[in-house]
């Protein structure tokens, strides 16, 4: 089943390469022209990678925060990471420092939310989402303030914050991908401990899991990836929320499967969304991809609240 899904992702990637503001015909002679090789292919691969990161981190967040509605967006992590990114842009930091600053902001933000919403290891899901959303609003207000204050130097900040997959170089892409694969494998090794974390704190500890260490490690890995994503593409909402649920519905709750399928489905979903954002406006203009993922995600969010309220909410 895993190979079938992986194949699906690859097919999506290949098809997406042929759609865009200037359509490349499947069988035309200049398939391997410069536009495709230097711009579209890395962009499509990048959207698959970012989508994978978002799905993967969403799966981790939902588990360690014990909340089916948790993801980078609803916990405020991506909002704060965006704030970190904007601040480093404003202060003119070197390109390579931006993800680092975004990470520091995001990890502080999520630690804050965690402390606010947990008492003796029990996390109140309502407080968590509430404080996460407030943190998000707070962060975007600060960003709004910075935007007005530094009006001219940040022309494309709006587009950045709506979520968009911009130009990436092959080098950036490959480094990011290797980094992701490394973190993915490190986290996947812990899948059995992660399963145990779905139990209450007392049971998890007495079952032999060093809860604090496993949780901290997972927090850092998920937040690292989220900050990296945000610093490259801005906030892309809801993928981290939807995708783990789809995987769980289809392939069960065990984290080994959930981590793998969330990554694959996240990749598929963002690749499709990005392709749609490229072709949906006939004139050739591009929609920020965040609009499409948020639309799809919003619908799913309501589905979750209506259909599964009795089962998943607690």
């Amino acid at each position: 089943m895993k190979s079938i899904c992986l194949l699906l992702l690859i097919i999506t990637i290949i098809l997406s390469v042929f759609f865009g503001s200037s359509n490349t015909h499947l069988f035309s002679l200049n398939i391997i022209d410069a536009v495709v090789l230097n711009y579209r292919l890395p962009r499509v691969l990048f959207s698959a990678l970012i989508g994978g990161c978002l799905g993967f981190s969403g799966s981790i967040y939902q588990l360690i925060l014990k909340n089916p509605l948790a993801d980078s967006f609803t916990t405020g992590a991506s909002g704060v990471a965006a704030l970190g990114t904007v601040i480093s842009l404003v202060l003119g930091f070197n390109f390579y420092f931006i993800p680092l600053i975004a990470f520091i902001f995001a990890i502080l933000g999520i630690a804050f939310i965690y402390k606010l919403s947990s008492i003796n290891g029990y996390i109140n899901p309502v407080t968590m989402i509430l404080s996460g959303i407030v943190l998000n609003i707070f962060a975007s207000s600060l960003i709004g303030f910075l935007k007005y204050f530094f009006d001219e130097s940040l022309g494309n900040i709006i587009f950045f914050l709506m979520g968009g997959l911009h130009f990436v170089s092959w080098t950036q892409l490959i480094f990011f991908m290797l980094f992701f694969i490394m973190l993915f494998l490190i986290q996947l090794k812990d899948h059995y401990s992660l399963d145990i974390l779905s139990l209450d704190e007392a049971t998890a500890i007495t079952t032999g899991v060093n809860v604090k260490a496993v949780r901290m490690k997972a927090f850092v890995i998920a937040t690292l990836l989220i900050s990296l994503c945000v610093s490259f593409t801005g906030i892309i909402g809801f993928i981290g929320l939807i995708v783990p649920h789809i995987s769980r519905d289809l392939f069960g709750s065990a984290m080994y499967n959930n981590l793998i399928y969330s990554t694959i489905f996240g990749g598929i979903l963002l690749t499709i969304s990005d392709t749609m954002s490229r072709i949906i406006i006939p004139s050739g203009a591009e929609l920020p991809v965040g609009i499409i993922t948020s639309l799809l995600g919003g619908i799913f969010f309501f589905y979750l609240l209506i259909r599964k309220r009795a089962v998943t909410w607690f």
Binding site: L63, K66, N67, P68, D195, S198, L199, D200, A202, T203, I205, T206, T207, G208, V209, N210, R248, G252, S253, A254, V311, F314
Partner: peptide
């Protein structure tokens, strides 16, 4: 912690679980 889990097992009053694992799992 890991060794403790081989000496005693504890069932707290409010055993609680998130997500729909199966009974076997």
């Amino acid at each position: 912690t890991h060794e403790r889990a081989k000496i005693f097992a504890y069932l707290p009053q409010f055993f609680h679980l998130i997500f729909n694992f199966t009974v076997f799992e």
